[in-house]
Design a protein around this nucleic acid. Structure first.
Lengths: 248, 248
DNA sequence: GCGATCAGCGGCACG
DNA sequence: CGTGCCGTTGATCGC
């Protein structure tokens, strides 16, 4: 495909349709960082909202990118240059893609107002647990959920069978140091606010050895959260199930 | 484009070339979570390494995805169904994309062995700072960089003009709670190890009000890092520059 | 708008 | 392989 042909197609569709260009190109980026990528075959996608993505033939992430709101334009000289700029008060960012040859260029009018629905997020697990905190510890009664204060946002607050306040921090994957310090912060803040002793329970499918050590040294507790997400979400601790058939 | 035509093209190129399919489809995902996305126009990209990306016409991130090593296959019935599976000991994941119509399907042999070079990462700033820690505070002398211990990895360790140990945690953007707790953890661990008082300096372009409050309450310090990355990296504190012309 | 946190985070580097 | 953590993180939700 001729560069000029690609240029015309891109020029007349940028900002309207989704544009795809595939070919041999170099890429430069300047903004929050600086990058260069010498010549090779890549896929360039420019979305209707300005999103600008340069993909190589491997890896999940775009090798160079610019978010929604960016403005793209094309220039034709020795190369077909496609530029994406994003300007804000604090920062200007720019990507230059120089195509020396184009294998394919096309534009597509994508009609799509649908939003994805995801089930199995931390919030979903939290809601499920809230229905029966006995899964975490017998006798726990929820006090409030996601209570926000200036120091952050707690997942679950409850009282144990002896009436003590308990903060529960939920993680959907292996817990690390950050989860421990996060929980510690909430516990300390809540103790100060309520002026009473507060327990902290980290509830996750696993925890690293060092994080566990730090957790215990801080007087906090770990509760293994055994869950599976298939056609239904199953928290194995107490055979707790929530059918998600209606989800489909 | 006929579904059968697209099917044949995809079938004969999956696992070899990069495949792109654009059309009206539904998407389901089951694995670490569960998701569904009802019918709309999307772009599907399957890379040579198995990476599987479903993009809508807006937003940077793929709405559904599967990483390298996934295996894709196609089936033709009432729909053109493209399936990507990723199996591991701990988890099986699967995406189903059902196309009811296809606007475009193509395969591309992308030759690209080039790697991106990026300048301006936290590590780069760290290296730059290490050349003259006076930028952070007059009299600082580096002891070590990126020293790992069981509790994490410290960016920079130095001694101040009075011989006290100083841990410097560097952030390339606005610092938050996590940066403070991270630094606090390092300082406490180093104090225990060395059995001496250790200072902690959080070095970032900015810090949130609450994080600063927590920092100060913890006896730690903040040092504003005024840097810009253009054709050269400039740390404004002491007019410290590093030319990066050779980077191009 | 800032701020705090989640994410199906991904990816990397080091033990 | 686990682990800690950075990322041009992005995306979301609350204030």
């Amino acid at each position: 495909m001729k560069l000029k042909e690609a240029f015309e197609l891109i020029k007349s569709n940028l900002g309207k349709k989704l544009v795809i260009v595939i070919g041999k190109c170099r890429v430069r980026y300047e903004g929050r960082a600086t990058s260069k990528l010498s010549e090779g075959d890549r896929v360039l996608i420019i979305k209707g909202d300005g999103t600008f993505l340069v993909h190589q033939n491997s890896g999940m992430a775009a090798i160079n990118y610019q978010g929604p709101g960016s403005v793209a334009r094309a220039e034709l000289n020795a190369f077909l240059r496609i530029i994406s700029e994003r300007k804000s008060k604090k920062l200007n960012e720019r990507i230059d893609v120089d195509f020396s040859s184009v294998d394919f260029a096309g534009s597509f009018d994508l009609i799509d107002d649908k939003q994805i629905s995801i089930y199995g997020s931390e919030k979903d697990l939290s809601n499920l647990l809230l229905q029966d905190l006995n899964i975490v510890e017998s006798g726990l009664v929820p006090v409030q959920q996601e209570s926000s204060f200036l120091k952050g946002r707690m997942d679950i607050v409850a009282r144990d069978r002896e009436g003590r306040l308990v903060v529960i921090e939920l993680k959907r994957r292996q817990a690390e140091f950050s989860a421990v310090t996060q929980l510690k912060r909430y516990v300390e803040e809540l103790e100060k606010r309520k002026n009473e002793k507060v327990r902290g329970i980290l509830c996750a499918p696993g925890i690293s050895k060092n994080a566990l050590s730090m957790l215990e040294k801080s007087g906090l507790e770990f509760s293994k959260l055994d869950y599976a997400i298939e056609k239904e979400v199953i928290i194995k601790g107490l055979e707790k199930k929530q059918k998600t058939l209606d989800f489909y």
